[in-house]
């Protein structure tokens, strides 16, 4: 499990790996703030995430609004596990991460 941040000239990529839940929430927020404050495009890569809980969805939703407010592009990339997608969907949360694909 881990969250890493990589910056290039044009964008900042936050890569999520493993279960992104309340235990990782503080770290995730810190990196999102850093990314949104960089003034570059922000991309959150979900390919290696095995689980997303409510706190992760809230952070992504807030970061997206924050980035859009600052005129920064915010995108999600990669597909998540079908089970994660179903869980989010059954809680009505999938829409807040759209577009989101299953792998």
């Amino acid at each position: 499990m881990g969250i890493t941040l990589k910056q290039s000239k044009k964008s900042t990529v936050i890569r999520l790996e493993g279960a992104i839940d309340i235990a990782a929430a503080a770290e995730f927020k810190k990196l999102l703030l850093q990314a949104c404050g960089s003034g570059k495009d922000v991309r959150v890569a979900l390919d290696d995430a095995t689980d997303l809980d409510v706190t992760a969805v809230e952070l992504i939703w807030a970061a997206r609004r924050s980035a859009e407010g600052a005129g920064v592009a915010f995108t999600l990339s990669g597909a998540v596990l079908e089970s994660v997608l179903l869980a989010l969907g059954s809680a009505g949360l999938q829409q807040f991460l759209a577009p989101l694909d299953a792998r």
Binding site: F28, A62, L93
Partner: peptide, 25 residues
């Protein structure tokens, strides 16, 4: 079950407590 989640209470990122649940259903 039909579900409608509300994110209305989620504050801006800088003010958000990352360990708190703001969503209601």
């Amino acid at each position: 079950l039909s579900v409608k989640a509300s994110m209305a209470a989620v504050p801006p990122l800088s003010e958000l407590d990352p360990e708190r649940c703001y969503v209601s259903w």
